[in-house]
Amino acid sequence: MAGRTSLFIFQLTRTMKIKQFARMFPAMALWCVCAWPQLSAQTPSDAIMMANGQFCAALLYTHDTWDEYWEGTLKRDNGNIGVLTRQSVMPMLALGIGERINVIGALPWVRTAASAGQVAGAQGLQDWGLWVKAKVFERGPLSAYGVLGAGAPASRYLPDYAPFNLGLGAPELSLRGIAAYQHSSGLYGRAHWAYHFRGQATIERDYYYTTHGYYTDQVEVPDAVTYGVVAGAWLLNESLKVEAGYDGMISQWGHDIRRQDVGFPSNRMIFTRIGGGLQYHPPRLKGLGFVLSGNYVLAGRNVGQSTTLTGGLLYQFSLWNNHQQ
């Protein structure tokens, strides 16, 4: 999914990504978005919490390309794909409720296209996502968070025929844990880990072959684990956040793409990735922020070696509880 890419943050991204990636085309990630120093913002996988009554809207654009992919463990190019590009536009909303809960929602629109070959790309809404994030622990510079996520296709996109598919086509529930450390100097670090339960995707054929034949139009999409570590700092009087990270995804089962076959939602998708990002909140533009991030897949299996760039705008304001600002 490239589609999904987004950003809101890194983590969000990650969650989404998975699906996107799933398709072989990883998308990428992003960093966090909506938060700035005092306000705190947030994404499903970061350690930022928005204050009670704070609302953040973000719009992220992601551009994800690859010209090589892993067919199982074999890295190859494909003259009938050339460069595969996934673009996504993702609106994202986050809201602080009480002192310990944030709710986040996102809905990416994705478009896929190949630079070579005759096969048409696809475009449309991918999967909606909804996350509830709770701060479960805080002591001094340490904090921990739990995130419950859910998502499902938001349109009748076809999950078949990767890498042209918009998404994996399956509903998902995810549980994420985040541990964070914030130093008084502005430096911070964080680690996160999530398990993604995936349901079944529906394709438009009622027989398919993976490692044997299936007489159904349902495809069991493998569960996945995502994980990552991030280090960053708030600079310039907390108007600029700089981050770098390493993350990955591991399908918990699934099968390899066979030689010269196409990708499928039940593939065993694995990747590791590095990335970095900036988030800037101009001191004179109250509530407004800009994000820019990039990711690069280092290694993978049944995914594309994506390079992803994301840029976006955020706007944060108080819905209630104004005095807290």
């Binding site: 844990g177 034949g213 349902q218 569960d223 918990q252």
Partner: peptide, 26 residues
Amino acid sequence: SLRSIILMLTAITGLFSACQKDDLPR
């Protein structure tokens, strides 16, 4: 607290893994 979080994650991982159903008709 960290230890309990790690333990919790480990337990969750254990609970979740090996959940593949693969009961679709062959």
